[in-house]
Structure formats: structure tokens, C-alpha cells
Amino acid sequence: MTAPKAVDMTVLQIKQQVVSTATDAGIPKFWITDWLLYVLAKPSAFLIMEENYQLTDSEFEQFNAGVTKMQQGIPLAYLTGHQEFWSLNFNVNEHTLIPRPDTEILVEQVLLWIKAQGNTETTIEKPKNKANKRLLDLGTGSGCIAISIAHELAQGSTGNTKTNVAKNSWQVVAVDVSAEALEVARHNAAVNNITNIEFVQSSWYNELPTNLESLFDVIVSNPPYIDESDEHLQRLQAEPISALSAANNGLADIEHIVQQSLPYLRAGGLLAIEHGFDQGAAVRQLFLDNGFDAVQTMQDFGGNERVTLGQLF
């Protein structure tokens, strides 16, 4: 005789409790339903087609344990170990930030700029005796920015629009000070079949050469930019704080990246940085004070200033 279940819980019952559970925990509703699908190893249609499915004891225990961890501040992506970004799948853990949708704006703007250079007379000085152009991603973390850009450039496209960018004509260099983060990034490059990328352990530019052949046509970064005293950091304690917050009202690392970029960026090259919603004016001034032109700030999906770009002339 089969022993009775300790808890008889169906998909429908969980769905009926999602709103109250998410509200009480202060987490997005989709975290709970996505976690349920992960535990059951089912596609999203299962939530509609199989509402009467009754979880096994082990499934319920795993589901309930995960919800408890989310209530304690552990993000869904750390429970599943992965996060989608730019149509690719990335492994993440406690050593890396979880990729955010707004960071796709940074990827998109860099690709659009590269496309424009391919369609017009470029002002970038051509590297001597070197076919490949070079792109640097500072503070790569999971590698989501570098790998997404490298993926598009290896395809010979920028986003959904084909360009005249030659396949494999770009070499991407991804830098991070954390050896653990770089291990994750290397794995993500491998699983996404990205080969036109090199990983370097370095604190920003420190371990990079400055000779002419090593200059970059594009430097991109999503650095720490949250003020160290910002109360929102309390909700992000599961993620590496060193990758989130910075001194000087959150501007210290951005200031360093901009000021130190000149020996590493080719004339006519692009610098693109993600920043806080209220830092646009300050970041634009940093660009202008350090010799950048065509400086502009792009908004994220919420209409907030999020990415500033400028060319070095």
C-alpha cells in the first residue's frame, strides 16, 4: 500500500497562491511559476494544460525549499543557475551579477554603432598589419555583454539586421578582476560556441598592453555604479556587492574607466558605459572633460537614462 502524501498540492493550487506568496515575499510573480516549471522540467504550456497535475513529495519539497530561499533574498537565477540574455543562455552564480534586460540596451547601441561604421566612411584609424578590429569589455562578470556582442559579430550581423561586417573580423577581449567570474564567463563562451573572445584577469586596464597593435576600436563596460549608501543594496545582498556599488556617489569606477581609457582606445573609437538612472549628466560631463565627442545618453526600457556613448577624436 502506498503511503499517503504529506501534502497534496496541484499546479492549480500553486497558481492560485502565486500573487499572495509573491507579494508577501516582495518578489516577482514569475519567479514562482518559473521555479515550478524548473522543478517539474516542463515547458510553460504545462501550467495551462496540466493544472490538475499533483506534485510528488520530492517535487513539492524542492519547490517549497526554493520559494523559501527566494523569500530569504536568493534570486531565481541563482536557484536555477542560469539567466537568458540577448537570446542566449548564461550560467550565473554568486560570483557574477545576474544579467538585466536593461543591459541589452548597451549591447544594442554598440552593435548599431559598429553597423554605422561599416556603412559609412569610418574615422577609426586602421591598425597597421592587423586585420581584426578589437573590442574590450571591462568587468565582464558572467560574460553576457562580451559574448552577446561576439556572437553577433561572428555572425556578421548586428542584432536582426545584416551588415557588411566581415565574419570573425572582430576580436573581443573580456576583463574581470575575479578569477571565479572569469571561470563562469569562459564556460558561457564555450556553451554558446563563441571562439572570437579572450579572457584576461585584470583590475580594469591594469594588465592590458598599450602598444599600437593592442589598441581597441570599442571599449564597453557595465561597471559598479550604485552609491555605497543606497538603501536598494539591501535587496541585492545575494549578488557580489563589489560588482554593484562604488564610491563617490557611485561614480568612482566610471570615472576611472573614462579617464584611463585614452591610452587603450584608438582615435575615432567608441566608449560605451552603463550607469545609474540619475547619473546621465555627470557621466556625459566626464566624457566631455576627457576629450570625447558625439556624446549621447540612451534610455532604458523604463525611459531612464542608462547608457552613455562617446567617440574619441
Results as ranks from 00 to 15, higher is better:
Pro4Ala: 12
Lys5Tyr: 10
Met9His: 02
Val11Phe: 04
Val11Glu: 03
Gln17Gly: 06
Val18Asp: 02
Thr23Asp: 12
Asp24Gly: 11
Lys29Pro: 05
Ile32Pro: 03
Leu36Ala: 07
Leu37Arg: 07
Tyr38Cys: 08
Ala41Pro: 00
Leu47Ala: 04
Phe63Ile: 10
Phe63Ala: 08
Asn64Ile: 09
Thr68Ser: 14
Lys69Leu: 15
Gln71Asp: 10
Leu79Asn: 08
His82Glu: 15
Gln83Asn: 00
Phe85Glu: 10
Val92Lys: 01
Ile105Val: 15
Ile105Trp: 02
Ile105Ser: 04
Gln109Met: 14
Lys115Arg: 14
Asn119Gly: 06
Thr120Glu: 12
Glu121Gly: 07
Asn129Ser: 11
Asn132Glu: 15
Ile145Asp: 02
Gln155Trp: 00
Gly156Ser: 05
Thr161Ile: 15
Lys167His: 09
Val172Thr: 13
Val175Met: 05
Val175Cys: 08
Ser178Thr: 03
Glu180Ser: 14
Leu182Glu: 04
Ala189Asn: 02
Ala190Thr: 12
Ile194Thr: 01
Ile194Phe: 01
Ile197Ala: 01
Val200Leu: 08
Ser202Lys: 04
Ser203Thr: 13
Glu207Ala: 15
Pro209Ala: 10
Leu212Asn: 14
Val218Asp: 04
Tyr225Gln: 06
Asp227His: 02
Asp230Thr: 06
Leu233Phe: 01
Gln237Val: 10
Ser242Lys: 12
Leu244Val: 11
Ala247Gly: 14
Asn249Gln: 14
Leu251Met: 15
Ala252His: 12
Ile257Asn: 04
Ile257Glu: 05
Leu262Cys: 06
Tyr264Cys: 09
Gly268Leu: 07
Ile273Ala: 04
Asp278Glu: 13
Asp278Ile: 05
Ala282Glu: 10
Gln285Ser: 13
Leu286Ser: 05
Asp289Met: 11
Phe292Val: 10
Asp293Glu: 15
Arg306Lys: 09
Gln311Glu: 13
Leu312Gln: 01
Phe313Arg: 12
Phe313Tyr: 10
